[in-house]
Design a protein around this nucleic acid. Sequence first.
DNA 1: ATTAAATTTAACCATTTGGTTAATGCGAAG
DNA 2: CTTCGCATTAACCAAATGGTTAAATTTAAT
Lengths: 204, 204
Amino acid sequence: MVKVKKEAGAEQRILEAAKKVFMQKGLAGARMQDIADEAGINKAMLHYYFRSKDKLFEVIFKEAASNLFPKMVAIISEDISLFDKIRKFTKEYLEIVIENPYLPLFVLNEINKQPVNFHAKMFGAKPPDFSLLVKQIDSEVKKGIIKPISPVHLVMNMMSMCVFPFISKPMLQIVMHMDDLQFRYLMEQRKTEIANFIIDSIKK
Amino acid sequence: MVKVKKEAGAEQRILEAAKKVFMQKGLAGARMQDIADEAGINKAMLHYYFRSKDKLFEVIFKEAASNLFPKMVAIISEDISLFDKIRKFTKEYLEIVIENPYLPLFVLNEINKQPVNFHAKMFGAKPPDFSLLVKQIDSEVKKGIIKPISPVHLVMNMMSMCVFPFISKPMLQIVMHMDDLQFRYLMEQRKTEIANFIIDSIKK
DNA sequence: ATTAAATTTAACCATTTGGTTAATGCGAAG
DNA sequence: CTTCGCATTAACCAAATGGTTAAATTTAAT
């Protein structure tokens, strides 16, 4: 009868369970009962701590977004050379998504379904603004340090190569005949591979 | 009382409506009533023509996948030079997704939610196999035509840069301060931009 | 025109689902 | 020990939802 008490408080357990279920099934596909079961508590507790499904989802979503975006903002704002910035961004961003592989699809998917209000909901105070990086790229192009390239495309390319493999993991694994271990190993490689690929393309 | 008859048959209208609703809300988020309303017919018709929600979804999903993948397979199997293949793949693939911008997120999202059986369901006879392209890249590396690069990373990079912008369009538009027109224009540019970027990176 | 088959609809049904409530447990303060 | 407030649960509820059915309407064949 003695319940093992190593587990965290109810609220924390709910949050972890909700994260797991929402990430896997999305807002519409998740069932409150699933979350309660996953947390090992009564369903009414979900409403006791978080008023509604939407409210609970918003907490999870905000936490997910705050896990994804602030780091981006920090790095692109640093005062370092473009090549270093590319190396640092790709490496550190890969590290984040390797640890949270479900985050990107979760966030992007729900953004696309809720075309309204998510902006404020997502980045409370600090909307990531890549225009700084864009300006830096433009400047380096004009100074003749790198080949002429549209800064917007360069940023898009960089983000694409960092994030897309995680979004398309199941498809990639089929198309490229990979198991989970191989995939993980490839993602580790990409921490440096992406930057090299980009720099090789734009350096003179 | 005279009903205008310019509209297509019921079955076709259902398919179009289902595509629209499923694409926007996903399998779990879509309501049969939404689809019926969108098609302008009675809800029972959905079950008359397609037995269940799942069956209807499968039809839409298969059509979507068959719109996305066969072209990929065709191009990567062609007997042309690597650079030409990269140019052709990126250009033609961009053309497809520009016309169907919701397809990638729709397909990838549902794949991630249904980790089972989707393989057969998706590519009936022709599972796209990139190992041919991988071998071609490997061969060109060994022949010394291009810089040494992991073929798998190269293919990943190429696919990422083609598809990701469409998946992340709303986020990109915020982060990069773009409206729909600018986005569309950028995607047009990418038809050639991506290939140039890749080739610049790997050519000797 | 008559009949038979296919199509379409309104009403209905069973289940699922988010949410509520009232009672119970329980630990801390008095 | 009692009381009080927070935490927890089982039972319940109303709305939503996928699906069914039987009747009505249209279409096509004889």
